[in-house]
């Protein structure tokens, strides 16, 4: 059972890393700003899932559980049992922060892409710039 879990975990981690690589490829090679934005979303979400995976743990006897105490522990062994199976909550807190920041960044980018489309009539980053005003000093 543990072998299967370990295999699934390793496969998932590998998949996230491959996802990051593919998303990077998308950002660097695609000329459409929308495709770049989609790649950025995939990229940052893959990193977030990878971070949650860092907080994950495998235990010998039972499945890992959320770091929530259902009821007040009565004995020290209750606390030990809780520590034994609960996952690290900190990566999840970091990921929530990162998601919120990512949301702000991507919303701003999408707003800028709309403005870009209004100016250039396309979302292609290679659209020529007709200089309407140039600083001369």
């Amino acid at each position: 059972m543990n072998d299967l879990l370990s295999l699934a975990f390793t496969t998932a981690i590998t998949a996230f890393v491959i996802n990051i690589a593919i998303a990077s490829y998308g950002v660097f090679t695609k000329t459409s700003l929308l495709k770049k934005a989609i790649s950025i979303i995939i990229f940052s979400d893959s990193i977030s899932i990878l971070a949650i995976a860092i907080g994950f743990r495998t235990t010998e006897t039972q499945y890992p559980s959320p770091p929530v105490l259902g009821e007040k522990p009565r004995t020290p062994s209750d606390v030990e049992a809780f520590v034994e199976v609960s996952v690290d909550p900190l990566p999840q807190a970091f990921v929530i922060t990162a998601i919120v920041i990512g949301l702000a960044a991507i919303t701003l980018l999408l707003g800028l892409i709309i403005l870009y489309y209004r100016h250039f009539g396309t979302t292609d980053i290679r659209a020529p710039l007709d200089e309407e005003y140039e600083e001369v000093i």
């Binding site: 990077s24 870009y116 980053i125 710039l129």
Partner: peptide, 27 residues
């Protein structure tokens, strides 16, 4: 100004990707 929008997008896309690597490094 088209120039300003384009500059912000270039900065924004490159910057978002690059700072995501800082997140990865911190994790």
């Amino acid at each position: 100004r088209p120039r300003a929008v384009r500059a912000a997008i270039i900065y924004g896309i490159a910057g978002t990707i690059v700072t995501s690597f800082l997140l990865l490094a911190s994790f």
